[in-house]
Design a protein around this nucleic acid. Structure first.
Lengths: 144, 144
DNA sequence: CTAGGTGCAAAAGGTTTGCGGTTAA
DNA sequence: TTAACCGCAAACCTTTTGCACCTAG
């Protein structure tokens, strides 16, 4: 928790209790919770925190490069504190989101961008069934 | 337009005037309009069509594999009638979305998926500046 | 001390839904 | 003929905003 405080300060982000707590909640579980889910988890240990504050904190954390947004089809934005180069896998059944490591560090070679485009970011999302849902087990709802 | 009728029928999708028109509107311009934009364009030639119907039509077209959704960060879903394997480029300035051809047909080789995952789809989105916005020209708002 | 953050409640999009009337096969 | 679709309006969900109070530096 002291580390989190340090991390925020180092980024130039004013380390408030709420921001530290929201970031802490994100680091605690390796899933990709929605703002609402983050709010509920944060609230359990900090009852006075509001949803709007969670959104504010997430926006600040994103701006300072500590979390990334993950957007799925027609679903609420999810947040990911893993800033290493990786892809995402979205299970169509349980809607959990998993990190997928990449072997080579961003092989941009497979795209033919017409000249003039300046690329600053790249996002890869895979869809399908995760091991639990593919094995015929019942659909597991995210979070808990 | 007769072709569109045929296409819908061939897919097993009941070809109604509204669906044909929505699909027609999507094919007419090579951009990636939002539902609202599609609604406005459709309305100009079919004044009685409603936004809900546009959503219904888009949902049906998507279900039958004629269009794909393209989701950007915190923005309205956009729709793309190009069903060939391709990526998307999202301009951070003007927010236009461009299709990006891929050289090799889906090189899945660069991801290390843990066993048990069944992949059914893959979506790649690049972000940055398009030629117009990168060249210092003023930001061009999408559509018109 | 003060710029910026927080909590609250209300509003603003974007999308979905319920229902009576309509239409394509 | 009839199951599916359409138009309308209202609901719904996620996210943003305005404002008074508070807090970290």
């Amino acid at each position: 928790m002291k580390r989190i405080h340090q991390t925020l300060a180092t980024c130039g982000l004013r380390p408030t209790r709420q921001r530290e707590h929201v970031y802490h909640v994100l680091l605690q579980q390796r899933d990709h919770p929605t703002a609402e889910e983050i709010f509920l988890r944060a609230k359990s240990e900090m009852p006075t925190i509001s949803l709007a504050t969670v959104y504010n904190c997430l926006e600040a954390l994103e701006e300072f490069g500590l979390v990334k947004q993950v957007n799925m089809q027609r679903a609420a934005t999810r947040y990911c504190p893993n800033m290493h180069d990786h892809h995402h896998f979205h299970c169509d059944a349980c809607e959990n989101v998993f990190d997928v490591p990449v072997s080579s560090p961003t092989p941009k070679s497979d795209v033919k961008l017409p000249s003039g485009f300046q690329v600053s970011g790249r996002e890869v999302t895979l869809r399908g069934l995760c091991p639990d849902c593919g094995n015929g087990k019942r659909k597991v709802r995210r979070n808990g």
